[in-house]
Nucleic acid binder design. Structure first.
Length: 717
DNA sequence: TTTTGAAGTCTCTCC
DNA sequence: GACTTCAAAA
């Protein structure tokens, strides 16, 4: 199926502008015909491998057996992988026997769409997705035989943290006498342990030496957490992978069936996989050795998730007889952009790939833009974007990249004020918003009555019910084996009686609703909102954008056949925004992209701006704990720079107004990655300060500046 | 026991 | 600013 990322409408979420992207299934054959023309074989001999260079062709037409493709940025990695799928199909491999694993949802979508353009509808049956989504599919099908109930609920990260908090509190480590890791820290350590196999003690020594003394208690919390998950029928992200690996390694009968589903496995972004994922691949290849992995160690940027470049470096040893193909010709960027990028990455402590080269000579040197302060930087970027746009570059061919989601706040305000449409990738997610989680808690309790995390969340929402009452209620429910009626059997204290009654009535109504049909989930949300909207209005200062989010949630829900499908999909494929079938003209597709460097990986634009190239922002001060982390930040910067085809501008404000250090300007250093050598390849540009200075607080006449001031709390409001 | 207000903390990357 | 934690009031 062709997945069209289409921008439909903008809505606001907690003050942040988001763009809405959704996938549509297009069956219009004319669409494919038009797109295939570029890549269809002309001579009829080459088939799907036409239009590739020698190295790419070698990779795409490789026969059976393990294949490692070491592919630098912009060398046609995705193209090669897509063509390889095409070649396999031409050779008669059945599409549903091919598994295409990727690291992010975005790349999974893009790759399947491109495969379809190349080889047509046959590729529609190729199985593809992230490791987690694939694990989910398999566990729904086979999990029961591993002791997993089929109606399990998937917890996202913050759910997992909340559950960890329960365990911590129950074991009595919550009291603040001694310093004990927070739930976020516990979850992080647990996740690292599961994904890397590194013992908890070693992890603590490396990352949290202050907690080493608590190793035994932490182990107890983890044990309790694990047991809780089991009892409550909950599965966290790591479990998805862990169960998959366990099935493959310890249940031989099932392992054969699961591994037997596929004859060829292809993995993108292999440098970002971790040990657990490597184990899964090994298990999936137990009956054959048709494993193709693609990666670039210079772009490894997910070590915080336990990713290790050892996977890619050790691959040939792990799979003897591996064919290694290196892709080094860059088709994306001009030589000056590559020069800057190559020097930047050459400073990395450990490095394995060579310099990229291109035949794309000419082009400007990348700009190094000095701005006096943040408004100047913002102003410069916006002006330059408009200039490029006027020169004929579509907005969708321009991206602004930064290290962390909140770095674009000022820019977003300015873009909104100037009516420039933009997509924001990464950063605050729709589903992480408290009010969305609140509503989902109702649905999750219906779906899985043992879902302790959701019960707790939803009980605390009710007026008159606090922590103690919520715990009591859950105890009563546990005694009654979490049966549907058990909440009704709980006798609330007088002040919570009304709330209890309202909730009982609501849940009863929802349970007695009609069977799953089109729109059923949306109707359930509507019912929940009869109760919840008032609570929301009480709870939040600016309820309107939040209520609008819930409208969106209802629309999304309308697209799912069942509550279970809706909830699972939300955990694994959270929407950036949502669909609105009413609007959707192609003209709206011309949209600027704002993205974190992480989310930008695998993409390219004609013009790229990297903002906040300031030490402490990029690299982020928080990520400077060790040399390895600094190297990872450097690779991240490398990823950002190599997204650009023709225009690249890196900007940094000289003065940063830093609220953390009081109401004063601080003078900041340009990013350490832009050292003398790197700067030598760049062209210096000084950004003009905005014509209108920020007005004084008492004379706030310019609405835009005023808004910006309010957003930043600059005047201490 | 819940609610409320004030003080304190911390800002990341993704499935 | 957003969220958490803590102490005091209802």
């Amino acid at each position: 199926m062709a997945i069209e990322a289409r921008v439909v409408r903008r809505h606001t979420l907690s003050g942040l502008a988001l763009r809405c992207i959704f996938g549509t299934v297009s069956d219009d054959p004319r669409l494919y015909a038009a797109r295939e023309r570029e890549v269809k074989p002309r001579d009829g001999t080459d088939g799907a491998a036409s239009g590739l260079n020698d190295a790419q062709r070698r990779a795409a037409t490789h026969g059976e057996g393990p294949l490692l493709i070491v592919a630098g940025a912009g060398t046609g990695k995705t193209r090669t992988l897509v063509h390889r799928v095409g070649v396999l199909l031409e050779r008669g491999v059945r599409p549903e026997r091919i598994l295409l694993l990727t690291f992010t949802r975005r790349s999974a979508q893009e790759m399947l769409a491109r495969a379809e353009r190349l080889v047509g509808s046959a590729s529609r049956h190729v199985h593809g997705g992230t490791f987690h989504a694939t694990a989910h599919r398999l566990l729904r099908r086979f999990g029961e035989q591993a002791g997993l109930r089929p109606d399990f609920t998937i917890m996202d990260q913050s759910d997992a943290e909340d559950l960890m908090q329960f365990s911590r509190a129950r074991l009595g480590f919550g009291d603040r006498k001694k310093r004990f890791p927070k739930k976020e820290t516990l979850q992080h350590v647990y996740s690292r342990h599961v994904n890397t196999d590194i013992p908890v003690g070693a992890l603590l020594r490396d990352e949290y030496p202050q907690f080493v003394e608590h190793e035994d208690e932490i182990a107890k919390v983890f044990a309790d957490y694990t047991q809780r998950k089991q009892e409550r029928n909950l599965v966290d992200y790591d479990d998805l992978l862990l169960f998959w690996a366990t099935l493959l390694e310890q249940v031989p009968a099932l392992a054969d069936r699961i591994a037997g589903l596929y004859d060829h496995i292809l993995v993108d972004e292999y440098q970002d996989t971790n040990l657990l994922q490597a184990r899964i691949l090994r298990g999936m290849c137990r009956t054959h050795r048709n494993l193709t992995v693609v990666g670039d160690d210079a772009q490894s940027i997910y070590s915080f998730r336990g990713a290790t470049i050892r996977n890619i470096l050790d691959f040939p040893r792990e799979y003897p007889g591996t064919t290694v193909v290196a892709l080094e010709e860059n088709y994306r960027s001009t030589q000056p952009i590559l020069d800057t990028s190559n020097i930047l990455i050459s400073r990395a402590g450990e490095r394995h790939t060579k310099n990229l080269y291109t035949r794309r000579t000419g082009g400007d040197r990348p700009w190094l833009v000095t701005a006096q302060d943040e408004p100047t930087q913002t102003r410069f970027v916006v002006d330059r974007i408009l200039e490029l746009h006027e020169e004929g570059t579509p907005l969708r061919e321009i991206a602004v990249l930064f290290r962390a989601g909140y770095h674009s706040a000022d820019l977003e305000i300015e873009l909104t004020a100037r009516s420039i449409p933009f997509d924001k990738w990464g950063g605050l997610k729709f589903l992480e918003a408290a009010h969305v989680k609140d509503v989902l808690a109702f649905l999750r309790v219906l779906e899985n009555p043992r879902d302790e995390v959701s019960w707790y969340r939803l009980l605390l929402l009710m007026p008159g019910i606090g922590e103690a009452t919520a715990r009591n209620a859950m105890e009563v429910m546990a005694e009654h084996a979490w049966s549907h009626a058990s909440f009704g059997q709980f006798t609330p204290p007088p002040r919570a009686r009304a709330a209890h009654q309202a909730l009982v009535t609501l849940l009863d109504t929802l349970r007695s609703g009609p069977p799953d049909d089109e729109g059923a989930v949306a109707r359930e949300i509507a019912r929940v909102r009869v109760l919840y909207d008032d609570i929301l209005r009480e709870k939040y200062d600016r309820p309107d954008p939040r209520l609008a989010d819930l409208d969106q949630l209802q629309v999304i829900a309308g697209g799912y056949p069942s509550r279970a499908a809706f909830l699972s999909a939300l955990a694994l494929e959270p929407p950036q925004g949502t669909q609105d079938l009413g609007v959707g003209s192609d003209s709206e597709d011309d949209t600027l992209v704002l993205s974190t460097a992480h989310s930008a990986k695998g993409r390219e634009w004609d013009a790229v701006f990297v903002i906040w190239a300031v030490d402490g922002y990029f690299p982020l001060s928080r990520a400077l704990g060790s040399d390895d982390q600094v190297d990872e930040e450097r690779r991240l910067m490398y990823v950002a720079l190599t997204r650009a085809r023709n225009h690249l501008a890196v900007s940094y404000p000289l003065n940063v107004y830093d609220t953390r250090r009081g109401a004063d300007y601080t003078f900041d250093q340009v990013s350490r990655f832009l050292d003398r050598g790197v700067r030598g390849t760049m062209q210096r540009v000084v950004a003009e300060p905005p014509a209108a200075e920020l007005p004084a607080p008492d004379a706030a006449t310019a609405p835009i500046a005023d808004l910006r001031a309010m957003m930043k709390g600059r005047f201490g409001v």
